[in-house]
């Protein structure tokens, strides 16, 4: 197993764990680890490919996603710093079972597609699916926000791994979008939480469907 495989596996495992944990503090830590996974992907590619600008990506990911974004998301409201009160609509076991199915599906799909490095790409796809399931399986506003940002991190790593033809630092713009995404999520969610005094989106009637 190479360092690149390991970094991608880290992205997948943090995606799974972020969907399971109950406290905002833990999910914040996991988000930081996931961002380090993306930075590792960029660093490995910077060493192996003739693209020195990838070191800029490494720096941007560490500064934006490891240092700034978690602070933005954690700062606003004492309400979000406590444990989540909401229960998941699925049991933990059911959720894990869905993740297993998604992972198997992603791996089979990547092999069927006959793309280079099918296992690596399969695990990345699986991480993407896990984050998407996370977004629809948890009801806490802050958990959903982390799932969305986690999805962004996985996509950030994905464009480096899959986008073999990316020959300029365009992915930096994608990382900067993550910063603005975090700021927007933080503003909407914290204002919403202050108004509604709840972290459970089921208690916000408009969001039920």
């Amino acid at each position: 197993m190479t360092l690149l495989d390991l970094a991608v596996f880290l992205l997948w495992s943090t995606a799974v764990l972020m969907a399971m944990v109950k406290t905002n503090r833990s999910v914040n830590l996991l988000f930081r680890i996931q961002a380090l996974g993306e930075a590792t992907v960029a660093a490995v590619l910077a060493v192996t490919l003739p693209y020195p600008w990838l070191w800029l990506t490494v720096a941007a990911v560490v500064i934006i996603k490891v240092l700034i974004v978690p602070r933005i998301l954690f700062r606003n409201d004492p309400l979000v710093q406590g444990d989540y009160g909401a229960r998941s609509p699925f049991g933990t076991t059911a959720l894990l079972f869905f993740f297993l199915l998604a992972t198997v599906f992603a791996l089979v799909l990547a092999h069927w597609m006959k793309i280079g490095h099918p296992t690596l790409v399969g695990i990345l796809l699986a991480a993407l699916l896990v984050s998407l399931i996370h977004m629809s399986s948890r009801y806490e506003a802050w958990s959903i926000a982390r799932a969305l940002l986690g999805l962004e991190t996985i996509c950030g790593a994905g464009i480096l791994v899959i986008g073999l033809t990316l020959e300029e630092p365009a992915d930096l713009a994608v990382d900067i979008v993550a910063l603005f995404l975090a700021l927007t999520i933080s503003w909407v969610a914290s204002t919403l939480m202050r108004l509604k005094r709840t972290v459970d989106v089921r208690e916000i009637k408009e969001l039920i469907g």
């Binding site: 959903i144 909407v188 204002t191 108004l195 509604k196 916000i204 408009e206 969001l207």
Partner: peptide, 14 residues
């Protein structure tokens, strides 16, 4: 910044 508009913004965003 009232309940309804923020709820709409939240759903829009996610």
């Amino acid at each position: 910044a009232d309940g309804r508009s923020l709820e709409a913004a939240w759903r829009f965003l996610i």
